[in-house]
Design a protein around this nucleic acid. Structure first.
Length: 768
DNA sequence: ACGGGCGTCTTTTTT
DNA sequence: AGACGCCCGT
């Protein structure tokens, strides 16, 4: 152990050895945060003779948990299965599986995902006759989730907001929503944490059990915890008070999900006697990359100010590039991937492309396909959200929990059994009248709904049979799909799409197989819980030599030799929805900081003059974050900013979709990988569009400033106003939307068609 | 019950 | 641009 400790720097050592009492570790990006946590676990077990089962370690993602376990086991040299190490959600599910009966639920409870939640809200609103024009299901679901983040139960919510017309209605939906969840013996994502907290607060014996058990509590990514998570760890650590939290207030990027950055800011107040340790030495990035990160983040208000430094050397300057549009932006990425691969002997897997929103991946994917570059994309359409997988899961859910009406509704007519909308409606009524589940209603439907009874006889038989069958989960899946004719009906479709669906199902069987092999507790319920909590980055395999594409949020906690940060435009990043709120802008800035600090050697930042989103083309100014970087820290600055000012040249950026066929699409779990099909004989050299370099003009900063200073009177604009644009000619304003201190103007041009421009930037002239 | 056609809204980010 | 819901005709 002694030599292990020697591997740490002074600050890290201090954080590890400080085991007793509350301890706050402010750990900058790449400063060895995971190292501190794993060494601390090892130190507790080996040096302090703490039993593994007396330690609770909570991480943010399953991947981080897995990595931490492996690293800790390597240090100790033995398995530490008894250590409680997992995400907030997985830890809480574990507790709920034991004690949820205290809340009147059955331990075979189901976990509803977002789409289940949407359906449920929709049902509730329909039942309550709520106008979906005034209350969208999304906004209501959002309100409910916010209420849960604030730990308000329906009654408390209704009490708190009585008198508020809108919230009273939302409260009604919330109450019904929660009741229906219970009727289905189901909970949603937010309930996982809240219910655990509730059980601990209302049951002294349970609280005593866990707070005695967990003599040491460690929490990773503390800046991203919300109120209920805070309450949870406070309760669990209440007996011994040995709590270590590690986090970086500059990397808090989950405010939208209720994460409360004040948790980390107030930690020393919440836990008196806190030892605060700052880790500022960065082991990941080059000096120049850190300069970019530091320069931008210093524009945030900050309590724990810290300055990252490194011994890694300055490295190459980060490069900035401006493309004409998203396709030329993508070409730039490809040129540099190919170049670095050649010149510096890098592998595809050394590159990651990060964007603000999933929809940005499309253009990049298209170009990567043309150029035969293998890639994988994290997030976006997820494996477990595919129809065939959800259907299969619904069958399993029904077998595990016959009160799950949602699972039943999903598959009762899948494959077609002649049970349509009306039949389901009838069923639901009968179930409600008799206070039984819909499945029960079907079973005894011979009296009142003979047609449904006839049509579903076989279906019920299959479920009944499988309910009691003793077999493996993968076996169960195959039986379900064969006996119900689900696979057969896909085969009958005889389309490529159906073929893909069958392949996905086969992949799902493989997932089940692996689960059985790996998990000690391999019951069906446990399997279902596991997949509800699975997330995108979990299945990131390092073995594939492919380029990785993902959102900035998904990239948190990861590192790559080369990072491309794309779409640095006002309205994209920072996103338009954050423009009106300084706090939101700060969160975007933290997101940028996270992105920059993923890079070990090379960083490329790109933006585009025009970008097509949702079918309309926008002309966005470069992101404000670029202006916060001193230009001597960036390479290509002049070129990029001059490019930005160049006139449009309308190059044809169309590409041929036929190339798509030369890729083999490999879907494994929730990561989709595209690999080049070597057997196909086509040349990728045609149809390559080039990017222009090498023009000079005055600095972009000055010109933006100059444009802004022309002092446009925004009040003159209104819908129907005729205007003139120096490039697009005459047009009429069709829509106005304020965005920050600027206005987003939609214009129908006589010749150039429909465009979307930022008023301050576009230089429009009013025509009388 | 089901499919085609049309209008709508969308996209921030996720355990 | 594309997905999705809604309406109507079969």
């Amino acid at each position: 152990m002694q030599n292990i400790i020697e591997e740490l720097n002074d600050k890290q050592k201090e954080a590890v050895e400080n085991t007793e009492g509350p301890c706050l570790v402010i750990a900058g990006a790449g400063s060895g945060k995971t190292k501190v946590l794993t060494y601390k676990i090892a130190y507790l077990i080996q040096e302090k003779n703490v039993k593994p089962w007396n330690i609770l370690a909570i991480t943010f993602t399953n991947k981080a948990a897995e990595e931490m376990r492996q690293r800790a086991e390597k240090l100790i040299g033995e398995n530490i299965n008894d250590l409680w190490l997992g995400t907030f959600h997985s830890i809480c599910v574990r507790i709920l599986r034991k004690f949820i009966d205290r809340l009147g639920y059955d331990t075979s409870f189901a976990i509803f995902d977002t789409s289940d939640q949407k359906t449920l809200v929709k049902n509730c609103m329909k039942e309550l006759n709520i106008d979906t024009k005034l209350f969208t299901e999304k906004s209501v679901l959002n309100a409910i989730s916010n209420a849960k983040n604030e730990m308000l139960e329906p009654e408390q919510y209704n009490f708190k907001y009585s008198g508020d017309y809108r919230k009273e209605i939302i409260g009604k939906v919330y109450s019904l929503y929660q009741k229906k969840l219970k009727d289905n013996n189901a909970i949603d994502f937010d309930d996982i944490i809240n219910f655990t907290v509730k059980i601990l607060m209302e049951n002294p014996d349970v609280l005593d059990y866990y707070s005695t058990k967990f003599k040491y509590v460690l929490v990773d990514e503390y800046q991203d915890t919300n109120k209920s998570q805070f309450t949870l760890i406070t309760l669990l650590a209440s007996k011994y008070g040995n709590i270590t939290v590690v986090g970086d207030n500059d990397q808090g990027i989950y405010g939208f999900r209720g994460a409360d950055i004040s948790n980390i800011l107030n930690f020393e107040k919440d836990f008196p006697g806190t030892k605060i340790i700052k880790l500022e030495q960065n082991y990941r990035c080059t000096g120049n990359i850190l300069k970019v990160a530091n320069a931008v983040i210093k524009n945030n208000q900050n309590k724990y100010e810290k300055k990252l430094w490194t011994n890694n050397g300055e490295g190459t300057l980060p490069y900035i590039f401006c493309g004409n549009d998203e396709y030329s932006e993508a070409n730039f990425l490809i040129e540099n991937i190919n170049r670095l691969k050649r010149e510096e002997y890098l592998k595809y897997s050394d590159f990651a492309i990060l964007y603000r929103m999933n929809s940005q991946s499309r253009a990049i994917e298209d170009k990567l396909r043309i150029e035969n570059i293998p890639y994988k994309i994290i997030g976006g359409l997820k494996f477990y959200e595919r129809k065939e997988i959800k259907d299969t899961i619904a069958y399993l859910r029904l077998i595990a929990n016959q009160s799950d009406n949602f699972a039943l509704e999903r598959i009762i007519n899948e494959p077609k059994r002649g049970v349509g909308k009306t039949s389901i409606e009838n069923l639901r009524e009968i179930a409600e009248e008799n206070n039984i589940s819909m499945y029960e209603a079907i079973k005894s439907a011979d009296k009142y709904l003979p047609r449904i009874y006839e049509n579903t006889k076989e279906f019920v038989n299959t479920i009944e049979e499988l309910k009691t069958t003793e077999c493996s989960i993968s076996e169960l899946i195959m039986q379900v799909l064969n006996k119900t004719g689900y696979v057969q009906s896909l085969k009958d479709e005889n389309t490529i799409e159906a073929e893909t669906r069958i392949q996905n199902i086969e992949e799902f069987v493989t997932v089940a197989n692996e689960f059985e092999k790996e998990s000690a507790d391999n019951t069906l319920v446990e399997f279902l819980n596991g997949i509800s909590l699975a997330s995108d980055t979990d299945n990131l395999e390092e073995s594939d030599d492919v380029v990785t594409l993902m959102t900035l949020h998904s990239a948190k906690g990861l590192e790559y030799p080369v990072i491309f940060l794309v779409g640095l435009e006002e309205g994209i990043f920072p996103g338009h929805q954050s423009m009106d709120n300084p706090e939101d802008i700060e969160e975007e800035r933290r997101l940028f900081y996270v992105g920059v600090t993923r890079a070990k050697q090379n960083l490329f930042i790109t933006f585009a003059k025009r970008r097509t989103i949702f079918g309309s083309t926008s002309y966005n100014p470069p992101s404000r974050f670029l202006k916060e970087i001193p230009k001597e820290v960036l390479d290509g600055y002049e070129d990029a900013m001059n490019e930005q000012l160049e006139d449009e040249d309308f190059e044809d950026t169309n590409f041929d979709w036929k190339y798509k066929n030369h890729y083999n699409k490999i879907e494994s779990s929730n990561v989709i990988t595209y690999k080049v099909d070597k057997s196909s004989n086509f040349s990728s050299n045609e149809n390559r569009s080039t990017t222009k370099f090498g023009r000079t003009a005055e600095s972009f900063l000055a010109s933006i400033q100059a444009k802004k200073n022309t002092d446009i009177d925004l009040s003159k604009y209104k819908v129907g106003q005729k205007i003139y644009h120096k490039k697009f000619g005459q047009g009429v304003i069709s829509k106005l939307e304020s965005e920050g201190d600027d206005i987003k103007v939609d214009i129908d041009f006589e010749k150039a068609g429909h465009k979307r421009l930022m008023a301050k930037f576009a230089g429009l002239e009013i025509l009388e």
